[in-house]
Amino acid sequence: MSGFSHDRTMKLADDYQQALLDGQRDKASALIIDALDDGLAIPSLYLDVFQLTQHRIGRLWQQNKVSVAVEHYSTAVTQLIMSNLFPRIVGDGSAGKTVVGCCVSSELHEMGMRMVCDFFEMNNWTTHFLGSGMPDADLVGFVRDKQADLVCISCTTSYNVQAVKSLVAALSDDAGTMSAIMVGGAPFAANPDLVALVGANATAADAREAVRKGWELVS
């Protein structure tokens, strides 16, 4: 149980966001490290601080209050911190399950999938995060080689939904691939009917739910 209160976590999110908007990478990083030292749990950090902040800054871009450059800077800083935290979350593979996570096609918004893979890592799955720009055929081959139990595909921009359908079909058509397929991202979160339309098995609203549903799919 985290000793970090909800109010304190929300205050951290506000301060972290401001540090990002001010271009203060080192301050942003220090805020996170101090909070972890004070008892903030990493799952809460991911969902209640990083995810919330990303959504808020995306909204600020939508409102024309910050530039694309500021948005990308904020993402880069958060990804840097997540990378530095990885040794704290690395699992031992004792779950006996393997997940491959990637962003579909030209989808560039990869932080969500990185979070999903990290949550599986925290739950002792063997994880393979492939990022974005993944050719379908290479992904299918990788999934087959790793005998993955689960493939997670992320899609943030609606125009990539058809690419998700193509990728799911490629995975399903490959006789050597027996993985369950979960899809996620804004279009699926808002419209779960898309899950069946692209031929996937499930979707999840966030990384925590992805792990829960992942277990359901492979058990």
Binding site: S158, Y159, N160, V161, Q162, A163, V164, K165, P187, A190, N191, D193, L194, L197, V198
Partner: peptide, 10 residues
């Protein structure tokens, strides 16, 4: 994409 995968909600 919509022509290939259509959801009125989306």
């Amino acid at each position: 994409s919509v022509a290939r995968v259509f959801s009125h909600g989306d």
